[in-house]
């Protein structure tokens, strides 16, 4: 049995916003291990949707940019409505993840029967992480361990594996990057099981320029605080 057939029940979701320069390579790499790749084009204007389609992915298009969390949720809804996939991988379009890590996490999901498999760049080896980024991420981790009651070591890693049970229970509604915390906060209350796997993140010039600026942590905290108040 080839790797392809073994992963036929896996659907990879790639949320992308103006990633024309990297998405083709990312999808080509993914297709080495996975047959089903769904790209959610979050209102891009650089034609990366066409590139992704040409590279062999199914492309869903947001008419208006809605943020990464909304794009991922669209992918989740697609999987639930139109496929029978048992496992879903979320994978960033900027090339910072390694396909072998995704494969390893899928194996972990099958072996442990966990609902969610999370990736951690802090227990794995990450190339050239800027110091400021390390401090901001560490602070975010403390915050999440405290609010989400979760023993994780990395909170904003785009690489995740979810099974269908997790897909039906988690709904991402937060704007911008706050969805990552929302995702983690949904695990324990919904009675989902999780494991964390060490992975690698490649910090390239591109991903650094494209990625989140550290000051955005303020926005994330604000969005989360408002959500708390709304729940009262």
């Amino acid at each position: 049995m080839s790797v392809h057939e073994a992963n036929d029940d896996v659907c990879v979701i790639v949320a992308m916003y103006n990633e024309a320069s990297t998405v083709a390579a990312v999808i080509t790499a993914l297709r080495g291990s996975f047959n089903r790749i769904v790209c959610v084009d979050d209102g891009s204007s650089d034609g990366c949707g066409e590139i992704a389609r040409a590279a062999g992915a199914t492309v869903l298009r947001h008419a208006v940019n809605q943020g990464q969390g909304a794009a991922l949720q669209t992918g989740f809804d697609y999987v639930l409505r139109h496929t029978d996939a048992a496992l879903v991988v979320t994978f960033d379009a900027d090339g910072q993840h390694v396909v072998e890590d995704a494969e390893r996490m899928i194996r972990t999901a099958r072996e442990t029967q966990s609902d969610v498999v999370l990736a951690s760049r802090f227990t794995g080896t990450s190339t050239a992480m800027p110091t400021a980024r390390r401090i901001v991420l560490k602070a975010g981790i403390r915050f999440t361990q405290w609010t989400a009651k979760l023993e994780v070591t990395d909170t904003h890693n785009g690489l995740r594996v979810l099974n269908r049970n997790a897909l039906t229970r988690i709904r991402l509604t937060m704007p911008r990057m706050a969805y990552a915390s929302e995702f983690l906060s949904a695990i324990v209350p919904n009675g989902l099981t999780y494991v964390e796997v060490p992975t690698t993140v490649n910090y390239t010039e591109y991903s650094r320029g494209k990625g989140q600026s550290n000051i955005n942590a303020v926005n994330i905290l604000f969005d989360l605080a408002v959500r708390r108040m709304r729940a009262i």
Binding site: V40, L60, H62, Q66, D77, Y78, H82
Partner: peptide
């Protein structure tokens, strides 16, 4: 709305 539109298109 955007999500629904994307999902309809894919369907």
């Amino acid at each position: 709305l955007t999500r629904e539109l994307a999902l309809r298109e894919s369907a």
